[in-house]
Design a protein around this nucleic acid. Structure first.
Lengths: 227, 227
DNA sequence: CAATTTTTTAACGTATACATTAAAATATGC
DNA sequence: GCATATTTTAATGTATACGTTAAAAAATTG
């Protein structure tokens, strides 16, 4: 029997509820700021309230929604200020990860995924393909954090990336092609390969800070108060 | 009717379960590494499994325990490496908070709690009272993070402080009286009062890094593999 | 007797019934 | 008509029954 690609099998309803709700949130079917009763969600997911309640607790801890007794769960909507807070943390922790990665003195071999992500980004820019660039950019950042070797950082960064996912998607097509960004990635790669942790940290810190400023400006310019 | 100090009233069982389990963990009644069935915990807390299950999900997301189906929940036990990871994040985020606090240019008035915490710490050291010093130290760090003004940092730092609580308590009486530490706090206060964010960041970074090294060394010296 | 299979057990996962309670709707008093 | 008190409603919070399934125990087999 062949395994279906949608991975929907065998896991508990509770886990499926977490995945399904995440997917619905990311797809915008549960829009930021909207309220939903447990019973509605349970019906939508074809299960009882029990696993849905458990899922909402998990998602609340990840900042994707807020459980508001008797008012339903509210899908998180981030203000520009929330965005600033999240990016401050992302900037700081990813920069630390970059510094740790440099200190680890990885071999070229071990840095190959980081390298290939930079190449993909450059190809995407050349091809004027934003979606493909965004995927490679995400891969680069994930790999960077992984190379940092700190599981706690990985968890926090992953959660916060989820929270700003929609904002990134919204602004992807408003921004200029990420020319400068690619130069940063290349420089960061070099710093890590050389084991220069101070440079790695600084390059990434500046990189993320600029990304934060651009994102917030774009959201403001386009009147997106909460996303 | 007078409100009893134990705050046990009126909240939901689920919330009480979270608080009660946290208290039991901090008190060492649910020791690190120990396993507990949902049904045991439910009986101990005088409620059904339902709110206990919800509580364990919350506490799992805060890193205080791990839900292991059919093997009970396991109370988290941190290795030296876990400790390093947590302290790396704490160091980084508290240093950022210190820097943000300095940039906020608070008035002496607004910094009064920070100041009074430093005075308490100095008095405690003079009186050779470690417990009192630890309380003031915690108050100082809490206030520092609060002054940073980033709610996400506050949440993360609070969770991680909970996770290393036991380790701190264990080592409190193994360490020398925190003479140097107090000098750091005073210097940090001055940097924040002056609005010198770079200095604030560096002072705190070094302070926390030293604290981390001391903690890990103490745990190793005393053969505490997991706490 | 060791390895494997089968059976049993017990802990969890889920649905559901019901209790609780905040919010909404209605009634009451002025 | 407005403010307050009461009733009603409905969503959540909790207990519980039961199905599911991993792990343990027992039986079987070579």
């Amino acid at each position: 029997m062949s395994r279906v690609s949608t991975e929907a099998k065998s896991k508990s309803h509770s886990i499926r509820a977490v995945n399904a709700l995440r997917a619905l949130i990311f797809a915008g079917e549960l829009p930021p700021g909207s309220d939903h009763l447990e019973s509605e969600l349970a019906e939508k997911l074809g299960m009882s309230r029990t696993p849905v309640r458990e899922a909402t607790l998990v998602l609340e801890s990840q900042g994707l929604l807020e459980v508001r007794p008797r008012k339903g769960v509210r899908i998180s909507a981030l203000s520009a200020d929330d965005m600033r807070e999240i990016y401050e943390v992302l900037t700081e922790l990813e920069s630390l990860a970059a510094s740790l990665a440099a200190d680890a003195h990885y071999s070229k071999q071990e840095l190959s995924r980081l390298k290939s992500a930079t190449l993909e980004m450059e190809a995407s820019v050349a091809a004027n393909d934003r979606e493909s660039w965004a995927r490679a950019d995400a891969a680069f950042h994930d790999e960077l954090v992984r190379l940092g070797g700190n599981k706690r950082i990985q968890t926090i960064v992953s959660n916060f990336n989820d929270q700003v996912r929609r904002a990134r998607a919204l602004t992807l097509h408003m921004r200029p092609m990420p020319q400068k960004s690619n130069e940063d990635h290349r420089a960061l790669y070099e710093a890590i390969a050389k084991g220069d942790s101070k440079a790695a940290r600084e390059i990434h810190w500046r990189h993320r800070t600029e990304a934060k400023d651009m994102l917030i400006n774009l959201l403001n310019q386009h009147g997106l108060r909460r996303v």
